[in-house]
């Protein structure tokens, strides 16, 4: 079980969190003119890398904040965690 440092609460066990997907994906702006391909890439395409990955996690049984976790998907090492609005 991972040990994730919530930037708001501190170190907590993985079972307090829900995984929230790739944190490098940016939602297109509202009312933005956008091609089908660009939109489909946003909705569906994810890299799923083996190795370092910036992810969203939701501290669902804690402070209910979405956070960013810089994690190695192969070794599970967590390099750093960030608040949702922090640029990485």
């Amino acid at each position: 079980m991972l040990y994730i440092k919530c930037p708001h609460c501190g170190l907590r066990s993985q079972n307090e969190f829900a995984y929230g997907g790739d944190a490098t994906i940016k939602r297109p702006n509202l009312n933005q003119e956008i091609s089908n391909t660009e939109w489909d890439n946003f909705v569906y395409l994810r890299k799923s890398p083996r190795g370092r990955h910036l992810e969203f996690w939701h501290h669902i049984s804690g402070c209910r904040q979405w956070i960013k976790v810089d994690r190695d998907t192969a070794t599970h090492e967590i390099f750093n965690t960030y608040k949702a609005n922090e640029e990485v």
Binding site: F56, R64, Q65, A84, N85
Partner: peptide
């Protein structure tokens, strides 16, 4: 969770 995602991230 969905609402929180959009308020906190998007």
């Amino acid at each position: 969770s969905h609402l929180e995602y959009y308020l906190q991230i998007v």
